[in-house]
């Protein structure tokens, strides 16, 4: 005879495992490594060659173009790695969990994209800060079914975005008198570069080597 507490305990096990199985990692560790490395390199090169220009049209090409290329490359790598994982698990690439994640993330990502078209009062440094903030919001929007590492990444971007915008407001004059292009590149490198590298190190699948060598049944 099974008593109530045993039945409840088994229902708890079922619920907890089902919740774990619906967790969706929107950014693979390998893709974060690609994104982080590309961002650090792009920021370093961009900041070192940035001319002290105030011509917005020139700056749009010099600032936005390399970062859009980084975004496209990192996104392509992420989609490739997610599709490989989905194939390994025998799931459709565009699963219900992926649809939910995209639906949650899309509004904030679109808001970030619009910032490229509308110059902010803080110049490109302000735009970079907004990108950091909106990216953080987009990750947090998918946090209900994301692993803890993604939630922490979202919190880090959100906090950095808020801090950068506050700092930009308080030292606005200072920002306007610095090399906008260089500051913007450095903001991107410090956040999209370093944060993704830290995330990749934390989320890197441990025991991958052991899995590859352990016997199959």
């Amino acid at each position: 005879m099974i008593d109530r507490s045993e039945a409840e305990e088994h229902l708890r096990i079922i619920r907890s495992l089902m919740e774990k199985a619906t967790i969706y990692r929107t950014i693979s560790a390998e893709a974060a490594l690609v994104a982080g490395s590309l961002s650090v390199v792009t920021a370093s090169v961009g900041a070192s060659i940035a001319p002290p220009s105030w011509d917005l049209a020139v700056e749009l090409v010099e600032f936005a173009t390399p970062w859009v290329l980084v975004l496209l490359t990192a996104s392509a790598a992420n989609f490739f790695l997610l599709s490989r994982d989905a194939q390994r698990r025998g799931e459709a690439f565009i699963s219900q969990r992926m649809r939910l994640a995209i639906r949650g993330m899309l509004p904030a990502l679109l808001a970030g994209a619009v910032c490229v078209l509308v110059p902010t009062a803080g110049g490109w440094a302000g735009t970079a800060s907004l990108w950091v903030l909106f990216y953080g919001i987009s990750l947090l929007a998918a946090s209900h079914f994301a692993p803890k590492s993604i939630c922490w990444l979202g919190r880090a971007f959100f906090a950095a975005g808020v801090a950068l915008l506050l700092a930009g407001s308080f030292v606005f004059d200072w920002w306007l008198h610095t090399n906008q292009l260089r500051t913007a590149h450095l903001i991107m490198g410090a956040t999209f570069g370093l944060f993704h590298l830290v995330y990749a190190a934390c989320a890197w699948p441990r025991g991958a080597k052991a899995e590859a060598t352990s016997p199959q049944p």
Binding site: L17, M18, A21, R89, G90, E91
Partner: peptide, 22 residues
Amino acid sequence: RLGIMTLLATRPSWAFQDLKAE
């Protein structure tokens, strides 16, 4: 076995290594 059945109920199929890890 309850854990195995629960995980198998969430997806069409599970690789051995994924079940083991989970």
